[in-house]
């Protein structure tokens, strides 16, 4: 469903992605690992349509069609979701109204009717339960004054509400304690299905104990330099990235 072909992207003068190839099929979970500055967040931003990045060559295909010309919201309407590494605080917009507006925007774009109030509430309750969250959460201003763990849970809550076909989770595990990590993983696993795919971007193997990947990719200097199964993640945890850097050289 997602196919990235020889993708080159830069910000300003700086080239960050240097020929990334990645194919994700329905129902698969892919992990992308790599040291700081390897281009992990750039990759997720480019897929989601952030305008600061220029794609200089290559393509990103969704069901075989290029999405590079689409606005971020149009990509979301297709069923793409990006879980942010740093969710933005938006005072004055409540979690429930934000999620409601987003879900109905996505439904409208697909020609579906807006969800009625009681179905919306029911759906929210289920998602909250999955993430062990209190319903007082809904009336708080979006991410304002949230702890790191609350912000990440809020991302997964939104994902549960929007039911994407492909979710990219950008370092969702960073800054989480072990309990929060377990809850976030539980949220993701609860949404795994034959149709939903995930790309989990992470520094550490830790999260992958809970969300078992089908494929592990190593991103280094803007290229995917190694592909393996989950044992690759353990090897990285044990031995770091230096041996791969040497291997590449």
């Amino acid at each position: 469903m997602l196919e990235i072909r020889e993708l080159y992207a830069s910000i300003g003068e700086k080239e960050i992605l240097r020929g990334v190839n990645l194919t994700v099929k329905p129902g698969e979970v892919h992990a992308i690992m790599g040291p700081n500055g390897s281009g992990k967040s750039t990759l997720s931003s480019v897929i989601a349509g952030r305008e600061e990045y220029q794609v200089t060559s290559g393509d990103v295909l969704w069901d075989g069609k290029s999405i590079l010309e689409l606005a971020p919201e149009e990509r979301a309407h297709l069923g793409l979701f990006l879980g942010f590494q740093y969710p933005v605080e938006i005072p004055g917009v409540s979690v429930s109204n934000f999620v409601k507006t987003a879900l109905n925007a996505v439904r409208a774009a697909r020609g579906e009717e807006a969800l009625d109030a009681s179905s919306m509430l029911k759906k929210m309750r289920e998602a909250l339960q999955l993430l062990e969250m209190d319903k007082g959460f809904l009336s708080r201003s979006l991410n304002e004054g949230f702890s790191g763990g609350e912000k990440k849970r809020n991302e997964i809550f939104q994902m549960a509400m929007l039911e994407p076909r492909l979710a990219i989770l950008d370092e969702t595990d960073s800054g989480l304690d072990i309990d929060a990590l377990r809850i976030v993983a539980q949220g993701v696993n609860g949404l795994r299905s034959a149709k939903a795919s995930f790309v989990v971007i992470t520094h550490y193997q830790r999260l992958l104990d809970y969300i078992i990947p089908d494929v592990v990719h190593v991103l280094l200097n803007g290229r995917i330099v190694k592909v393996g199964d989950k044992s690759l993640a353990y090897a990285l945890e044990e031995r770091g990235y230096d041996w791969i850097k040497k291997e590449v050289e």
Partner: peptide, 11 residues
């Protein structure tokens, strides 16, 4: 903030 909202499907 704008990108965050748009990435969730809000035009």
């Amino acid at each position: 903030a704008l990108f965050y909202l748009r990435a969730r499907g809000i035009r």
